[in-house]
Simulated scan of single mutants.
Amino acid sequence: MATALVPALLLSLTACQSSTAGPEPAPRTNGKAAAAVPAGVGDTADVGGSRFGEHLRISLRGFVDPAVPTKAARRPAAGHRWVGVNLRLVNVGGAAYEAPLTKAWIVDEHGRKHPAVTSGEVTTGFPLSGKSLQVGDDSEGWLAFEVPYGSRAVRLHCTVGSQERNWQL
């Protein structure tokens, strides 16, 4: 009787190891691979932060070139213009999150990075707030970037924690 159970047990164990169970989970990356294929205006990317529980959802909702500064904002330097991006940030993690205002750039067709203008208010809408986002909170607004005339803004680049995300403009 015991000899008849052994082949049946081995057969059932082999059946549990079938390769038709479904796809394997995607390999873990540090975010660099996801940055290779840029998204576009209207797309959303999820990124983790550098601390446990930090998880931010970033949506590129709009892009204007040139962006017109408000009367209260400083003006672009001679030979430069502002371009603006409208972002929505949502804290979908389990911890407070600091908005990544200092880690966003416009990249031109030559690969040069142009950082966000800290006092850049544009007429298309309210500036993106740099406040800390509590769990479940969101913030939407515009960031301005100073880009030389003659350069074409082709990509928005954001670094959050150790992850990078890009959006085609």
Rank of each mutant, 00 (worst) to 15 (best):
D137A: 15
P76T: 03
Q134R: 15
A73K: 01
T44E: 07
A104K: 06
V90K: 13
G94H: 11
T123K: 14
T118M: 07
Y97T: 13
L9H: 06
S12M: 11
E121R: 11
A72E: 11
R88M: 07
F52C: 02
A33C: 10
E98G: 12
Q134H: 10
L101P: 01
V107W: 00
N91W: 03
A144G: 10
D108M: 01
V90W: 04
E24T: 12
K71A: 14
P127L: 02
T14N: 11
V122D: 07
E146Y: 02
I106W: 00
F63W: 08
F145D: 02
S50F: 12
V147I: 11
E24L: 15
W142R: 09
V85W: 01
A78H: 12
L60H: 01
P115D: 01
R28A: 14
P38D: 05
H55G: 06
Y97M: 15
V107N: 02
S19W: 06
N91K: 05
G125K: 02
L89V: 10
G130M: 04
E109D: 05
S119V: 09
A77N: 10
L101G: 06
R74I: 02
G94T: 15
L133H: 10
S12Y: 05
W82A: 01
A35Y: 09
K113H: 07
G141V: 12
A73I: 01
T124K: 11
V85D: 01
K131E: 11
W142I: 03
A99W: 03
H55L: 15
G120H: 01
R75Y: 00
V6W: 03
P25D: 05
G31N: 06
R51T: 14
N91F: 04
S129Q: 07
S19D: 14
T29A: 09
A67L: 06
L56W: 09
S139F: 00
G130D: 05
G48H: 04
V41Y: 01
G53I: 11
N86F: 02
V41I: 14
R28W: 12
V117L: 08
R51F: 07
G84M: 01
D137M: 12
T118Q: 08
G130A: 08
L133F: 05
S59L: 07
V90E: 12
E54K: 04
L56P: 13
L101N: 05
D108P: 06
V117S: 00
S132H: 08
I106R: 06
R74Y: 00
P7C: 10
S12L: 15
K103C: 02
R28T: 13
D46M: 10
S132W: 04
N86S: 14
A104T: 09
A95V: 15
L13F: 03
R88I: 07
A39Q: 11
E98N: 15
S119A: 13
R51L: 12
A96T: 08
E121L: 01
T14E: 13
G141K: 06
V41G: 09
F63R: 08
P115Y: 00
A78T: 13
R75A: 10
S18Y: 02
A96M: 04
L143W: 00
E109N: 11
A144N: 08
A45K: 13
A96Q: 12
G125W: 00
A15H: 07
A77L: 06
E24D: 13
G141Y: 05
S59K: 14
V135P: 08
G120P: 05
G141W: 06
Q134K: 15
P69R: 08
V37M: 05
R75N: 03
S129K: 07
G31S: 06
